[in-house]
């Protein structure tokens, strides 16, 4: 049922209320702060915890990753594919490390699961691509954050 609101006789002509409303919009136009962020020149400030494009942390040009397979196991989107290999000094390392950027849901669970502090999510959020993009190992080894 419609609730019957009490309207005074003069309110029924809407005029006073309309003028009040017009004043509100005019006040907004003249004095209010613009909400627009003009993108290429201005950027939105995200938190340090923001989860953006991935990278694998490396020390002295050697990746921290030991291909322990914890991140593909924990990944809910199943977007991480690792092929493990062995170095001459018998250390395990990823021969292939691929992240399907369209499947990734940026939950950050790989980052949490990683025991070697290797996979990280940077602050970069401009990741638009023209085709389906799989991040290869070389791409991921670019250090694009300092987490």
């Amino acid at each position: 049922m419609l609730a019957q609101r009490k309207t005074g006789f003069f309110n029924k002509f809407y005029l006073v209320e309309i003028i009040k409303g017009l004043m509100i919009t005019m006040r907004n136009m003249l004095f209010a702060k613009r909400a627009t962020i003009q993108f290429p020149e201005e950027r939105r400030d995200y938190s340090e915890k923001f989860r953006g494009q991935h990278y694998i942390k490396s020390v002295n040009g050697v990746e921290n990753c030991t291909a322990c397979m914890l991140c593909p196991t924990v990944c809910p989107a199943e977007c991480i594919h690792i092929v493990a290999g062995e170095r001459e000094d018998k250390e395990k390392y990823p021969i292939k490390f691929e992240i399907d950027s369209l499947r990734c849901c940026f939950c950050g669970m790989c980052e949490e699961a990683c025991p070697k502090d290797a996979i990280k999510l940077s602050n970069i959020y401009e990741m638009s691509q023209q085709n389906r993009t799989v991040y290869e190992k070389e791409f991921l080894l670019e250090q694009r954050g300092n987490k």
């Binding site: 919009t25 005019m26 907004n28 209010a32 613009r34 909400a35 627009t36 003009q38």
Partner: peptide, 8 residues
């Protein structure tokens, strides 16, 4: 319209 709605 943009200016009245706090946009640019």
């Amino acid at each position: 319209s943009a200016l009245l709605q706090n946009r640019l």
